[in-house]
Every structure is written in C-alpha cells, then in structure tokens.
Amino acid sequence: MSDSEDVLATAAGWRAAGETVALATVVETWGSSPRPAGSRLAVSASGKLAGSVSGGCIEGAVADVAKQTMQTGTPQLLDFGISDERAWEVGLACGGKLKVFVEKLS
C-alpha cells in the first residue's frame, strides 16, 4: 500500500542522509488490530518516527526495540497481544494481537 511505501521512502531518505535507521513491519495480526500486515514504522537513532504499526498503543515499545536493533544489527520478531503481560504494560487497549518484525537498514 502506498502509505507503507511512503514510510520506506522516508526511512531511505534518513539513511541516505547518514542517520542510523530501523524499520518495523507488522507481519501478522489477529482480532481487532488497527493496522494491517505490511504497515511500517521507521525509527531513526535521533528519535524521528514515521508511519505506524498500531493505533499508537505499541509504537513506544517498538521504538525502544528498534534502538537495540540499530546497535546490534540483529533483527527481532516481537509479539504483542492480550496473552502477553507486556501488552498490558504497553497498553494494547484494542484487544488485538500482532507480530512486528524489526530490522536495521544496513
């Protein structure tokens, strides 16, 4: 979809400007998740954000993981859902479940 492509272009622009960038992508959803698989969130080392992977519930937690991934270069697959203690911590109020893949733009 065009919105995830815009996020990719934004991320590529940051990368080209010399920033360290990580990209988070929704890979699977169950129940009432607001953003479909393929939705993207780009995060830069300086703290810039573009796009979304939820209605705003988990972006903060994903951005934290993105910063780790920027340092290690190792991709991560994150699970958020009502069965996960962490989902309550980060406030997945929609009651949905989703998986988010986080990778560094090398």
Binding site: S2, E28, A37
Partner: peptide
C-alpha cells in the same frame, strides 16, 4: 513474510 508492493 511476503510483503507486496503494488504500483499506486
């Protein structure tokens, strides 16, 4: 994960 990127 298979992510399609269609033209607009």
């Amino acid at each position: 994960f298979v992510h399609p990127h269609n033209p607009p």
